[in-house]
Amino acid sequence: MMELLVNCKLCPRNCAINRLNNELGFCKSGKNIKLAKVSLHAWEEPCISGSNGSGTIFFSNCNMRCVFCQNHNISEEGFGKEITIERLSEIFIEQQNRGAHNINLVSPTHYVPQIIEALKIAKTHGLTIPVLYNSNGYENIETLKALNGYIDVYLPDLKYFNDKYAVRYSNTPNYFSYASNSIKEMFKQVGKPEFDKNGIIKKGVIIRHLMLPGLLFDSKKIIDFIYKTFKNNVYISIMNQYTPMFNAYKYPEINKSLNLKHYDSLIKYCLSLGITNAFIQGEGTCTTEFTPDFNLSGI
Rank of each mutant, 00 (worst) to 15 (best):
E94G: 08
N104L: 10
L147V: 04
N134R: 01
K145L: 13
I83D: 07
I93N: 07
S75D: 10
N73S: 14
K159I: 11
I151R: 00
E82C: 00
Y160F: 15
S89H: 10
L155M: 10
T84Q: 04
L147Q: 02
S135R: 01
E90L: 13
G80N: 02
G137E: 10
Y111R: 04
S135H: 00
T143K: 00
E86L: 14
G80Y: 01
L88Y: 10
I129A: 07
N136G: 14
Y138N: 10
G99F: 11
I151N: 01
T124L: 09
Y160W: 09
G126R: 03
K81I: 10
I74A: 09
Q95L: 15
I74N: 03
Y133M: 01
I91K: 06
L119N: 02
S89K: 06
Y138D: 11
Q95G: 11
T128K: 14
V153F: 01
I141D: 14
I91D: 10
F79Y: 15
G78L: 08
Q95C: 14
H72G: 00
E117A: 14
D157H: 04
Y154I: 04
E76C: 05
S75H: 07
K145R: 15
E90D: 15
F79G: 02
G126H: 05
K81C: 07
N140R: 09
D157K: 06
V112E: 04
Y133G: 01
F79R: 11
H125T: 13
I85T: 15
Y154V: 01
L158P: 04
L119Q: 02
E90C: 13
I129E: 06
I151T: 03
H72S: 06
I129N: 06
N148Y: 13
N97F: 10
L88I: 13
A122N: 03
L144N: 02
E142D: 15
F92E: 12
T143D: 03
N134S: 06
D152P: 06
K159Y: 08
H101S: 05
L155G: 00
P130S: 03
T109V: 12
N73M: 14
F161C: 06
N140H: 05
N71F: 00
S89R: 08
N134Y: 02
